[in-house]
Amino acid sequence: MQQIINFIIRYKNFLLYVFLMIVSLGFTIQSHSYHQSRFFNSSNWITGNILETSNDVSTYFGLDTENQKLMRENQNLRKLLFNKKELDTIVLDSVQLTYTITTGKVIKNSFADPRNYITIDQGSKDSVAPDMGVITSQGILGIVENTSKNFATVQSILNEKSNINAKIKNTDHFGSLVWDTKRYNVVQLIDIPRLVPLTIGDTIVTGGMSSIFPENIPIGTIRKFDLNTSQSFYTIDVALFNDMTNIKNVYIIDNSYREEILKLEKLTETNGQ
């Protein structure tokens, strides 16, 4: 007994180191296999507020370009609206809407790590919940992963765990959008069958298979394509429309039918066993 105590006292630093290392590795490895931890993320109260304050200051330097971006978007939307042929009254009754949109601002962005997360200034108080889609005026951005009262973290499409349904515009050939962690302006679209005709410059948009994003949200254009090792599917490099290094205003999309869809899919799965 004496010897055990002596041993512990003698190696207490080493034991403390090993203990803390196991704790950190535990957190890290858990996040590799599953979601980001509920507690260890920047949407909590302290970090959220500090990042927001810092962001409030730095936003002023980009107000001009940000305004221009929003003006351009408004211009596009007006064009669509005025040129709409069958001008009936558009019903904006919240009961009938499939998608509801919340606006938000990015308070922390990262794109240099293999697993990037973006923090936005909308949280559960603003009815933002995990698994909502996040887009900008130019294209897709990511999926909400965790929320606190005032903030939310978004799993960016520049994250090796990200996997989003996407297709080639005006066709129904869909695949998965992933990221190889190499460059922040290029993501990969995989699982497109070999027989699909492709051209460099084709537009890639979100597919209709996901209950998170509406169909036909722009993602990027084809930059390069190769067959994968089994020679039966394409691996396509997609140049993003979004400049992932410079994002301020975002839209958070809530699909009001998502729960119903998920419930139905789960029911089908359990019955199919």
């Binding site: 957190f27 260890f40 697993r115």
Partner: peptide, 9 residues
């Protein structure tokens, strides 16, 4: 780690 969403790396 809290600020940069990097778990405990």
């Amino acid at each position: 780690d809290f600020f940069s969403d990097t778990m405990a790396i």
